[in-house]
Design a protein around this nucleic acid. Structure first.
Length: 489
RNA sequence: GGCGCGUUCGUCUAGAGGCCCAGGACGCCGCCCUUUCAAGGCGGAGAUCGCGGGUUCGAAUCCCGCACGCGCUACCA
């Protein structure tokens, strides 16, 4: 029996759920699933200035989108609540007091201006930046007195001798020189804790055994380790995941856009695709597997197989995955999906509700032609709308600019379509008529059909022609062929 | 500047001394199929494993140095 593990996803409600955060949560979730254990969702809202309305909902939604469930959290409850840090202030104060009682923390009265100047001077002198310890040796009795009337923060007294060594589950041993550490703030003057104190208290109380977080936290690990030591608590295991980076190799940030997890959902990416994409960013199963189901991932995931180097967030790959999962959707589900997205994206004046028979006809034609769901409407719009203007050059683009051939094709098509009886109109008769053009023009269909595609749909690519024409109807088809003809002359 | 982490095809990665003159996937290119476009099938190009030393009969794999990239360096997380 393997010991039960507990990990936590601890996002800050400072904006929409970030794609990097989603990857972290996914790995935590898979880790817990694979090892038998629980995952705790904890909202870290200790930064009052950056709090963003609605971000907690965005977090819930983003996680559930990928099928990530948590065992304890603000919405589902649990024995270690509250699960929002702003509701746990008394515990942080108690811990800070305990640390002060043990001589491991002290009041700091340095105003922000002094700290800013200090940092500036240190930078100018090319010295390492960090707190200079000005308030460290104020006698406790004096400090206690001042703290009652003066604003103060509480700093942790780092042990500056020797080294602190972290045994990271992904990177192995990482050693930090303690002399290079400074006394950092654990309790802000406003009474809120910093991340360091809050995670110490919460992870301990919530019995977290594994802290899985991104590499940006690696440098602060010695602080956390010393904090645990000072409290006499045994620290959890740490695993620092590789960063997700942009094409320039920088940490993916909100400035780059395209990092809000739910935006991907709204642009028509399937959760299966996103899960696969994220799963293989920094992790792999073996030398063969390139697709994995959610349940399989949750079964085989292992931190041993997470690599330490950063991964580029390559959306080409995401697109390929999405196309793959779209194509593998069962037809009934696919039909429903098409209906939903067409309803969402088709112009308002298209008839609603959409004709289910029409959707059923369209769906299979669309399934292997798109990569994102938001492309759906664009491919069938020509059935509902008048054709928007298209450049004339589009008509002859694929036939080497041969205007004369295009004209002949259009004329022949006009004849052929006119020859189809309105009563007999349908995919079969349309196909027969259009195929006969091969004989009239003494040319393979593929040598000139692109002209007809453009004339009918306004684009050189799209769903198959015969079906399109059948769906469009006789009169509208004739009108579009004539319009194309006119445009060419 | 300091500290830390990282470095295998364009990209994500496999690789834990000989199976590797390096495997898979995405992307790219070509052919086939075909009513355009896709999809599908088949094939191809693509990595002197960052550089330089060493250890070893043998190194992508171990050691040392260097370079480069990134992260952190807040009373943000």
């Amino acid at each position: 029996m393997s010991a039960s593990v507990r990990t936590r996803f601890a996002p800050s409600p400072t904006g929409d759920l970030h794609i990097g955060g989603l990857r972290t949560a996914l790995f935590q979730w898979a880790f817990v699933q694979a090892n038998g254990g629980q995952i705790v969702l904890r909202i870290e809202d200790t930064d009052r200035d950056r709090y963003a309305e609605g971000s907690i909902e965005s977090i819930y939604e983003g996680l559930r989108w990928l099928g990530i469930e948590w065992d304890e959290g603000p919405d589902v409850g649990g024995p270690h609540g509250p699960y929002v840090q702003s509701g746990r202030l008394d515990r942080y104060h108690a811990a800070a007091a305990e640390l002060r009682a043990r001589g491991r923390a002290y009041h700091c009265f340095c105003p922000p201006e002094r700290l800013a100047r200090l940092r500036k001077d240190q930078e100018a002198d090319r010295q390492p930046t960090g707190y200079d310890g000005r308030c460290r040796d104020i006698p406790v009795a004096v400090a206690e007195g001042r703290a009652r009337s003066e604003p103060s923060a509480v700093r942790f007294r780092m042990d500056r001798s020797g080294v602190t060594t972290l045994s990271d589950l992904i990177r192995g041993r990482v050693t930090f020189e303690n002399a290079l550490q400074d006394d950092f703030v654990i309790l802000k003057s406003g009474g809120f804790p910093t991340y360091h104190l809050a995670m110490l208290v919460d992870d301990h109380e919530m019995e977290i055994t594994h802290v899985i977080r991104a590499e940006e936290w690696l440098a602060s690990a010695p602080r956390h380790l010393q904090l645990y030591e000072a409290m006499g608590w045994s620290p959890p295991r740490f695993a620092h995941l590789p960063l997700l980076v942009d094409s320039a190799g920088r940490k993916l940030s909100k400035r780059d856009g395209d990092v809000a997890a739910l935006d991907y959902r709204d642009r028509g990416y399937l959760p299966e695709a996103m899960l696969n994409f994220l799963a293989f960013l920094g992790w792999s199963l073996d030398d063969k597997t390139s697709h994995i189901s959610r349940t399989e991932f949750a079964r085989v995931f292992s931190l041993d197989r997470v690599v330490p180097n950063p991964a580029f967030f390559d959306t080409d790959r995401l697109d390929a995955l999405n196309g793959h999962y779209i194509r593998s959707m069962p037809s009934a589900l696919w039909r429903e999906t098409v209906a939903t997205w067409l309803d969402r994206d088709l112009p308002r004046d298209a008839p609603r509700p959409l004709d289910p028979v029409l959707v059923a006809t369209l769906a299979p034609l669309l399934q292997e032609r798109i990569v994102r769901l938001d492309e759906l409407a664009g491919l069938v719009r020509f059935l509902f709308d008048d054709l928007p203007d298209y450049p004339t050059s589009l008509l002859v683009e694929r036939i080497g600019g041969d205007v004369e051939l295009a004209l002949r094709a259009l004329d022949a098509a006009l004849d052929a379509v006119e020859g189809v009886d309105a009563v007999a109109w349908g995919p079969a008769t349309v196909e027969a008529a259009l195929r006969s053009l091969q004989d009239t023009l003494a040319l393979k269909l593929r040598k000139f059909v692109s002209v007809l595609y453009v004339a009918v749909m306004g684009a050189p690519r799209g769903i198959p022609l015969f079906e399109s024409v059948a769906l469009l109807g006789r009169e509208r088809t004739l009108a579009r062929l004539r319009a194309a003809r006119e445009q060419l002359t």
